[in-house]
């Protein structure tokens, strides 16, 4: 159980030490992240210049949703997505063979390889936005809130990991699945608003198909005191099911894998 964490630590350290050499990337990321944050905030303020309430969410609460969205984008962008791109490339170029001849679980190996540290800029920005939102809401800190928020955030990350890995696994059959990954990233953009404001069919899709609801809205609900213990339990159950299903499909995909030149 400890070895994956140890491996992740080592992979992360090596990634970070090497990325640090390219400082220009850091400034580019800061620029890009700030621009996108600025646009997001402007849109938010425009919306609230017409109304005080959007689907039951006040402006400060919506700022919290946006903060979670930025935070989650940063986490996924630095920890999950780069691994998925690397994995798909390995399948395409037949390099996965090397991973499969290692005496370690291949899913673990392909999932912890890369950390894109500069994307952590979004994590920092997201935390700042969240801080401002929490102050504006006049939220009283409590252990339950902190725990519920952290737990839902982690589960949201795990769910997004599952969905992104499932999409990547398709590369065992269809060598090019980039478009699908791009599409999912666009859909994820819908998460900047609480899913409750969307029509039913879209909300269902954003909950179970691409779990944007679990990844962004639920942690925001936890933070704003909307989370019930039932919803927390349901999220946990859904996360476990998703992990198990992903694992099974991974194993199935692996059995079908035969190498690019075979």
């Amino acid at each position: 159980m400890l070895k994956p964490i140890k491996l992740f630590g080592l992979f992360a350290r090596i990634s970070i030490l090497n990325e640090v050499q390219y400082r220009a990337n850091f400034f580019l990321q800061v620029l890009q992240s700030s621009l996108s944050l600025g646009t997001g905030l402007i849109v938010l303020s425009v919306v609230y210049s017409y109304t005080d309430n959007l689907g039951g969410w006040s402006q400060a609460e919506l700022l919290a949703v946006y903060g979670v969205f930025v935070l989650m984008s940063g986490l996924i962008g630095s920890l999950v997505l780069p691994n998925m791109w690397a994995f798909m490339e390995d399948v395409r170029e037949g390099r996965l063979d090397f991973t499969l001849t290692k005496p370690e679980d291949a899913q673990v190996l392909i999932s912890v390889r890369v950390v894109a540290i500069w994307r952590l800029v979004d994590v920092v920005l997201g935390l700042i936005v969240l801080g401002v939102a929490i102050t504006r809401m006049g939220l009283e800190a409590s252990w339950w809130l902190a725990f519920a928020f952290a737990a839902t955030l982690i589960m949201g990350m795990v769910l997004l990991y599952c969905v992104l890995l499932l999409a990547s696994i398709l590369s065992f059959w269809f060598v090019r699945v980039w478009e699908l990954m791009e599409m999912m990233q666009s859909i994820f953009q819908a998460g900047r608003w609480p899913v409750g404001i969307y029509p039913d069919w879209l909300r269902l899709g954003l909950t179970y198909l691409i779990p944007v609801a679990f990844a962004v809205t639920v942690p925001a609900e936890a933070l704003t005191g909307r989370l019930t213990p039932e919803l927390l339990a349901g999220t946990l159950l859904f996360t476990i099911v998703a992990l198990v299903v992903t694992r099974l499909i991974w194993k199935w995909g692996l059995r079908n894998y035969s190498g690019a030149s075979a």
């Binding site: 140890k6 491996l7 080592l10 992979f11 090596i14 990634s15 030490l17 090497n18 170029e93 037949g94 390099r95 063979d97 090397f98 290692k102 005496p103 370690e104 190996l109």
Partner: peptide, 21 residues
């Protein structure tokens, strides 16, 4: 095909193999 990660020095990849094996 290369099993070494092209973005990092070989010596870092060796460290990873040490951990994996």
């Amino acid at each position: 095909r290369s099993q070494l990660n092209w973005d990092i020095p070989a010596i870092d990849s060796y460290d990873l193999y040490r951990a994996i094996y």
